[in-house]
Amino acid sequence: MAEIPDHLLKRAQAAREKAEAQQQAEPEDSASPEKNDEAEATEEEIVVTDEHAEAALTVLERELDGKLLNSHIAPMRGLWIRVAIEDWRFAAKVAKEDLDCKFFDWLSAIDWMPSPYGREHETEQDKLNEEPEDNDQKEMEWGYTGGETRFQLICRVYSISRKIGVMIKADLPDNDPRALSLIPIYPGANWHEREAREMFGLTFDEHPDLRNIYLPGDFEGHPLRKDYPLLSRRMKPWPGIVDMELLPGDDQ
């Protein structure tokens, strides 16, 4: 790696300090999933949206009857629920029939494993202040509604009459990630499931046609898994966040 001029390092350092000071000055508390209330939002807004989401959650709690593992309401932003993978299709059915979620938005998955390749986007100068991370020690962190396994299925459906979007999540078992297809309930799930299979290596039972949708048939690997390497990036690192080059005449 080429040597970085001191003045650039100083500039980056100053910027980092400023950013950190700013972040400390304004501590944000919404990151933890437990806290639903937002200090900034006005009182009225919270009341209005919570009514929508909470009414929807009440319906789901009643219909799913103990199968609801966890839930989260983000005011103005929708409703997250988590069910067991055995209840995946049932939850979608409940959402469609009892919550009037006729609009199928999308379906996908998340790989919660931290990337074993670390933060490839940073160059050495960006790491100066930080301890080198040991990626093997890093633990999985799940988002809203938590999780237990590496892969999580997500499906978003929307109710036009209630104006509420429901994000349904389900953990997939690590050894054999498979789920029931949603096609009997939402025919639009067909291509989304093909995409999820190809990108994450999941299996959808009762899906009529699980071929690759994007990649050529002989493609190896599942690109959106965190352990799939981007080979070009392994060979040539990204120039970095502070990618400033010396201008002619900028000799210092």
Partner: peptide, 17 residues
Amino acid sequence: AKVPLIIKVPAGEAYVA
């Protein structure tokens, strides 16, 4: 608005359409 120069986004999930 006032944003830090180096943008680090706090943990969480958001869906905006």
